[in-house]
């Protein structure tokens, strides 16, 4: 049977379909490409995409389940001989970590006190949300992961996503029960970062290679091989200080980052819903700037009138 009723034959071989309809589909494909380019992605197409991935999410999860089991069996047999040694090492590290945890809690309390004292409101992350990876196509055009949690769990666009070792990317599409994470290695990924040691700023730019590069470094940026790179939070969409990787030079002498997250497969991830710091333009409170200023002026004026004119001659001095 032919589409459009223009088939030449009815048997299985040599069947022909409507040429007009085929050409229409070609044109539709090209139109979709134009309207879904990363530079000019249509919101309607993005929501349609999120809806379809929501539908596919349970099936992808089901398909991935046996492989998750296999992935756990493989390393177990590979490392059986080293498990005891590794266990002892992990116990030692755990004890060490307890000290750092206590210190971190202590510092957090101190920071809260300082913030209260200074009346500073800093950007904060809420509780993390755990999710399994449902799809991991490393295609030539996009490096992303589909995860099994979405808006219903509290995930929003732009939220940072980490695995056990470090940042892997940020959420770019959110459905009800699934989200798409753009990896740091993707061509379209741009994350403001800094060196932990020197605060040297840069932008981490994905280029589909294993090691994203550091762009927009100042000429005399204080950066050394092995420097710990963390998010700077300069864009206001990501919290400051999330671990990213280690700086290292490539053969051409350009700075790149060896991602911490590469130490483990991106399998189970945590999303950190983040309330970005709002710009003054977006903050409704700033609408009262003029009235606030007027209030301040009024207070100043009343203070001035309340003050006795003790030294009128002083003005002439």
């Amino acid at each position: 049977m032919a589409i459009g009723g223009s088939s030449r034959r009815n048997d299985e071989s040599g069947i022909r379909f409507s040429r007009t309809f085929t050409v229409a589909l070609f044109i539709l494909s090209i139109a979709l490409i134009v309207f879904d380019r990363p530079q000019a992605r249509s919101p309607a197409l993005a929501s349609m995409r999120a809806g379809i991935t929501d539908l596919a999410a349970p099936l992808l999860d089901l398909a991935a389940a046996p492989v998750r089991g296999l992935a756990n069996i493989g390393p177990y047999w590979d490392n059986q001989a080293r498990l005891t040694e590794e266990n002892a090492e992990l116990r030692r590290r755990l004890n060490e970590t307890r000290y750092w945890r206590d210190l971190a809690l202590q510092l957090r309390d101190q920071r809260e006190i300082y913030e209260q004292a200074l009346n500073v409101e800093s950007a904060t992350t809420q509780d993390r949300i755990g999710a399994w990876t449902l799809g991991d196509p490393d295609g030539p055009f996009v490096q992303s992961r589909l995860i099994g949690a979405g808006a219903r769990q509290g995930i929003g666009q732009g939220d940072p996503v980490l695995n056990v070792y470090g940042l892997i990317g940020r959420v770019v599409e959110t459905g009800q029960v699934s989200s798409r994470v753009l990896l740091l290695t993707d061509l379209n990924s741009r994350i403001p970062v800094m060196a932990d040691r020197s605060n040297a700023r840069a932008v981490l730019v994905g280029d589909n290679s294993e090691y994203p590069r550091l762009d927009f470094l100042t000429r005399n940026a204080d950066l050394q091989d092995g420097d710990r790179i963390v998010t700077s939070g300069d864009d206001g969409f990501m919290p400051r200080g999330l671990p990213v990787g280690q700086a290292q030079r490539d053969r051409q002498g350009r700075w790149r980052v060896r991602l911490y997250s590469d130490q483990a497969p991106v399998d189970f991830v945590w999303v950190f819903p983040f309330e970005p710091v709002r710009s003054p333009e977006a903050d409704p409170a700033t609408d009262n700037t003029e009235s606030g200023d007027a209030e301040l002026d009024a207070q100043q004026a009343s203070a001035d009138t309340a003050l006795p004119d003790t030294n009128p001659e002083g003005e002439s001095e």
């Binding site: 090209i30 197409l45 799809g135 295609g139 589909l146």
Partner: peptide, 13 residues
């Protein structure tokens, strides 16, 4: 295209 997160229409074309 949808499931791999790529630009819509590329694989269709």
């Amino acid at each position: 295209d949808v499931l791999t997160g790529g630009v819509l229409g590329v694989w269709a074309l």
